[in-house]
């Protein structure tokens, strides 16, 4: 069975695409978390918490760290 990915010249492009693809996944996740409508998220209907108790803030911060990790070490 041949491998399900291109070979030779395309591999240089593929190698450089790797970090961008992984960072892109986390970037999109951060955007989705930021843009998620509150009515879909907060079924408990509590008051808006301050930023340091806001789960969305921390989730986006984690995504940003992951973007940096893949761009630097990918």
């Amino acid at each position: 069975m041949s491998p399900p990915w291109p070979t030779l010249p395309a591999q240089g492009l593929l190698a450089s695409l790797g970090p961008a693809a992984f960072a892109g996944v986390f970037l999109l996740t951060a955007l989705a978390i930021l843009l998620l409508p509150r009515r879909l998220l907060d079924h408990d209907r509590g008051a808006t918490p301050p930023w340091w108790r806001n789960v969305r803030f921390w989730a986006v911060a984690i995504c940003v760290v992951q973007v940096l990790v893949y761009l630097v070490f990918g």
Partner: peptide, 17 residues
């Protein structure tokens, strides 16, 4: 390499993703 090349025997990065 956090992301090994696409022809890596066990962990090609497209398969990791």
């Amino acid at each position: 390499d956090l992301l090994p090349p696409a022809d890596h025997a066990v962990y090609p990065w497209p398969a990791v993703l």
